[in-house]
């Protein structure tokens, strides 16, 4: 069935395009989800002083490299947005795929890291520090994967010159995922 967008979608009483407004609300609801998890972690961490020892077994190098990868991919997606608003479709398409590439590198590094930690005996069940570590970074990883999938879909539209504002919306989401990592990095990797 062909779907025609209702007129309501095109209205903008707030002067913010509807898609972007909705993206901001998605970010708000994601802030409280990740925030809830992180707040629980912080409380446990301050309660259990022995967690510092466990935290020293996470690889700061891998974490730092991943932070760098995400920051760079954030740069790419904002450049894609810039290109899309200048209607440079080829460039926008290329930058979107650079961003997806960044996501891939992030996930590869992450999986090497996890493999390494699990092979050293630090699994989900070792203690609550590691449970938090796997659940939080895992949830973040799922967001990275979701972002990559959505970007791939959007890139098809970009090629045809359709739905260009979506590049900006996915960009906002991707930057949010980046910001979450900016906090997970010191929480799990640096603070020891």
């Amino acid at each position: 069935m062909a779907f025609t967008a209702p007129l309501a979608t095109a209205r903008s009483a707030t002067d913010i395009p509807t898609g972007r407004l909705a993206t901001w609300w998605v970010v708000v609801s994601e802030i409280v989800i990740f925030g809830g998890l992180v707040v629980c972690y912080i409380m446990f961490r301050l309660h259990h002083t022995d967690w510092a020892e466990h935290a020293s077994h996470t690889s700061t190098t891998a974490g730092a490299f991943n932070t760098f990868v995400l920051l760079t991919s954030s740069l790419f997606i904002v450049l894609a947005h810039q290109a899309a608003s200048a209607r440079d479709l080829k460039k926008a398409f290329r930058y979107i795929w650079f961003t997806i590439g960044g996501g891939c590198i992030f996930l590869v590094v992450k999986s090497i890291e996890w493999t390494n930690e699990i092979s050293h005996g630090y699994t989900l069940f070792t203690n609550n520090f590691w449970s938090f570590y796997y659940v939080t970074t895992g949830l973040h990883g799922l967001h990275v994967i979701a972002g990559m999938v959505i970007m791939a879909i959007i890139s098809i539209g970009v090629k045809k010159g359709e739905h260009l504002p979506r590049v900006e919306y996915i960009g906002i989401y991707w930057h949010f995922v980046d910001i979450v990592w900016l906090f997970l990095f010191p929480l799990f990797y640096i603070a020891k």
Binding site: I77, V78, H175, I179
Partner: peptide, 8 residues
Amino acid sequence: AMVGAYFM
């Protein structure tokens, strides 16, 4: 804050 201000 920088990512939020400039990228978003």
